[in-house]
Amino acid sequence: MSEEIQTEKKRIKSYFIVFGFLVILALVNVAVSYLHLGGMNIAAGLVIAGVQALLALGILMHIFWEKKTIHHLIGLAILFVLALFLLLVASYFDSIGK
């Protein structure tokens, strides 16, 4: 139990570092959206949001330290949500009369 408390104390610092990163990345994301990068705007925005999500998921939601059962569950969800996105986009672009 006390060991758990020790690791928890160490993690508090990482929570605030993550906080800093999340704030900075949000600002960067807004700034980037005012640049005219054409199609790259969306890509840049998604990458930044992706990094933010990874930080939040990994550290605030403890995924980096979590058990493998949880990794499998969340992996499954991400896999199928990507399948949904990709197949929808694919069937949009590959359709008769387009």
Binding site: K67, T69, L73, I74, A77, V81, L84, F85
Partner: peptide, 29 residues
């Protein structure tokens, strides 16, 4: 290495990922 509610909430969140996934895919489409 997990207590019940933690498995439960992650399963629920997995379904939430799919719920918002449905909305985002609609947005994309």
């Amino acid at each position: 290495g997990l207590y019940n509610a933690k498995v439960g909430i992650w399963l629920f969140l997995a379904s939430e990922v799919m719920l918002f996934g449905g909305l985002f895919s609609a947005y994309i489409f």
